[in-house]
Nucleic acid binder design. Sequence first.
DNA 1: AGCCAGGCTAAAT
DNA 2: ATTTAGCATGGC
Length: 297
Amino acid sequence: MAATEILLRVRDYDLAATLDSGQVFRWQPVDNYWHGVVGQHSLQLKQKGNVIHATALAPVKSSQFLRHFLQTETDLAAILRTFPDDEPMRRAVAACPGLRLLRQDPWECLASFILSSTKQIVQIRQIVALLCERFGEPVTQPSATLCPSNGERDGAGDVRRFSFPSPEKLAACNEADLRACKMGFRAPSLLNAARQIAGGRIDLEQIRTLDYAAARAELMTLRGVGGKIADCVLLFAYGFDSAFPVDVWIERALQELYFPRRRASAKRLRHFAATHFGPHAGYAQQYLFHYMRTKAK
DNA sequence: AGCCAGGCTAAAT
DNA sequence: ATTTAGCATGGC
């Protein structure tokens, strides 16, 4: 099969940490490469120093989609300079200096985070993988060496991959179809979101044109989408850098790192988060999240 | 066995 | 205006 090699020069970039940081759920390390899918492109990525090597398993016209997804032209140093100069932030950045935010497709991001509530990241990955296998389109040609007995790997150890299922595809499902992907009580929320979007009642492209507050309110009209999930989508898919998703890890981080003496209410923590971290608060959030998750182990 | 997991919603203070 | 069960499922 024809493949395309893409080389991207980067600086201040930690590809592995970024793909494994809980903002995306479909990338896995296989033999020194990260395997994943961006849109309809099946990709293998690896970083050597300041170069990211990408192999697209089918021909691509331009590397633009990949540079956009990876945000390789974002000046990370400039963003880090806007962070508050305090001890917790310095420690969080020092723990992973090349951690980045990606720029995801809004629907994939929204759907994935609807599935994320009270799930561990490993389980979110499993649910999303099942959803894509069942309802996505194959993005790699199943080869003659494909072993149907396990349905996943061919002779070279490669993994069959699928696009993320479209809203229309999921809108045509019923709740039981989705529950079969182990998503439990999240199934009706995902189904509703798919139908709202497929039916044009929510326009994910139009949300780009709104300001942060309006975009957030629009996403939160969806059942199963509260402030945290809306902020994840605004940050990871639309690039609203001021969005600061507050989950259990971040709540713990703020409490332990910034209010170690007294117990702070959830409201106080949210207010602190919204005012303390500056115009790229979302990046700061990602550093704190990564710091808390890695220092625990 | 029981608790908790990148939450949200509706009900109860 | 805040706090608290219930919600599926799986890993430990």
